[in-house]
Simulated scan of single mutants.
Amino acid sequence: MSRHAAPTRRACTARPSRQETEMTRRPTATLAALALAATLAGPAAAQETRSYTDALGRTVEIPVDPQRIIGLWDWDITTALIELGAPVVGSHGRVREDGSTYIRPANVILGVSFDTSDIAFTGAWQQFDFEAMAELEPDLLIARARDADLREQFEAVGPVVFVDTDGFALDSYRAIADVVGETEQFEARSARFQALLKDAAAWVGENDYTYTIIQAAGADASQVNIYADYSMKSYILERIGFTIAGEGARLRAAGEERITGSPELIPAQDADFVFGNYRIDQGAANGPRIEDARLDEMLPGYCDFLAACADGRMILVPREHAVVPSFQAWQTLTHIIVSHVAGRPGIAVPD
């Protein structure tokens, strides 16, 4: 049962796009004022602590059993905390055009957001609300290593641990679980996931399938992203027997993650299966049909240039499930892939 008072529901490296309004980072209070507020509002009872060395090489004293955690990035941190059942009291989030806020993508994958739980909104990208954080009396903050420039502001609120969220998703998730004392639960979930991948490989069979990953890029869909590594999507595909092909294979050999280029690159990305991505956190404003239309806009009739697409072997999947640290998301993605690859007898499969 979750400890953050949410309803009981289920909970490369390619990076998620940031389409919220870009704002300059503005501390909403001075460090001195924040430190005073944190001191006055600190937890009444002393907690047992332990030393932890974070991704920045800092050794920090953190609670052995934290009870009031703030996740300083919804996608990479808070969603994992929620799935682990950690006591999250605040989180970074996203702001819709109508001003409402949500925790991406925990709102659609785990059914948990600001309006369905007691988790408080503590600011959006580049606009953290440090006063709101201090008012929550946190005993632990967890931040991305890429936000190290805000270390002093975070430290003025409470103990902060920085986690590397730019590497392999399983490693990032494991680090988050370690910080909050949930390593045993993480390993149990990981073992079930690995067992599923073993089954999935048997369901797909030994076919030596190749794959590529493409995605329309830019608000005007004028370019295409070609990936050598799309986080857990690539991991799952390769664990069940797929091999990267096309420009992705060249990028992989060169140690690169992706390339953004002209739509004329699309025909050369044919493979046994071609994968694309779409967002699921924007309702009707996005989705597989929208992504298909964006690709067709940049290269009219693009599907005719890809045998995989023409034969029904192009598969668009939710990008959230491929990147977010969530075993529930990864298990769902595995079943989606297996269903499309091995579960459609009428689809022509390459020899």
Results as ranks from 00 to 15, higher is better:
Glu155Leu: 13
Glu155Ser: 13
Ala156Phe: 00
Ala156Met: 07
Ala156Tyr: 00
Val157Phe: 02
Val157Ile: 09
Gly158Glu: 04
Pro159His: 03
Pro159Tyr: 06
Pro159Leu: 07
Pro159Lys: 08
Pro159Glu: 08
Val160His: 02
Val160Ile: 10
Val161Gly: 02
Val161Ile: 09
Phe162Thr: 00
Phe162Pro: 01
Phe162Met: 05
Phe162Glu: 03
Val163Ile: 14
Val163Cys: 01
Val163Gly: 05
Val163Tyr: 06
Val163Phe: 06
Val163Asp: 02
Asp164Asn: 12
Asp164Val: 07
Asp164Tyr: 03
Asp164Gly: 08
Thr165Pro: 05
Thr165Ile: 10
Thr165Glu: 05
Thr165Asp: 05
Asp166Leu: 11
Asp166Ser: 13
Gly167Arg: 02
Gly167Ser: 11
Ala169Lys: 04
Ala169Leu: 11
Ala169Ser: 14
Ala169Arg: 06
Ala169Trp: 06
Leu170Pro: 09
Leu170Tyr: 09
Leu170Phe: 14
Leu170Thr: 09
Asp171Thr: 15
Asp171Pro: 10
Asp171Phe: 12
Asp171Ser: 15
Tyr173Phe: 12
Tyr173Asp: 06
Arg174Phe: 09
Arg174Ala: 13
Arg174Tyr: 10
Arg174Gln: 12
Arg174Pro: 11
Arg174Lys: 14
Arg174Ser: 11
Arg174Leu: 11
Arg174His: 13
Ala175Val: 06
Ala175Pro: 03
Ala175Glu: 00
Ala175Tyr: 02
Ile176Thr: 01
Ile176Cys: 01
Ile176Asp: 01
Ala177Trp: 01
Ala177Leu: 03
Asp178Val: 07
Val179Met: 03
Val179Ala: 00
Val179Ser: 01
Gly181Gln: 05
Gly181Asn: 04
Glu182His: 07
Glu182Gln: 10
Glu182Phe: 01
Thr183Val: 12
Thr183Phe: 05
Glu184Ser: 06
Glu184Leu: 07
Glu184Thr: 09
Glu184Val: 07
Glu184His: 07
Glu184Met: 08
Gln185His: 10
Gln185Ile: 05
Gln185Met: 09
Gln185Trp: 04
Phe186Ala: 04
Phe186Pro: 02
Glu187Trp: 09
Glu187Pro: 12
Glu187Gln: 13
Glu187Leu: 10
Glu187Thr: 12
Ala188Thr: 12
Ala188Tyr: 08
Arg189Pro: 02
Ser190Ala: 14
Ser190Asp: 15
Ala191Phe: 14
Ala191Arg: 15
Ala191Leu: 13
Arg192Tyr: 10
Arg192His: 14
Arg192Cys: 08
Arg192Leu: 11
Arg192Thr: 13
Arg192Ser: 13
Arg192Glu: 15
Phe193Arg: 08
Gln194Arg: 15
Gln194Cys: 12
Ala195Ile: 10
Ala195Pro: 09
Ala195Asn: 14
Leu196Ile: 11
Leu196Ser: 10
Leu197Glu: 08
Leu197Pro: 04
Lys198His: 15
Lys198Gly: 15
Asp199Cys: 11
Asp199Gln: 15
Asp199His: 13
Ala200Pro: 05
Ala201Tyr: 01
Ala201Thr: 03
Ala201Asp: 07
Ala201Trp: 03
Ala202Phe: 11
Ala202Asp: 14
Ala202Leu: 13
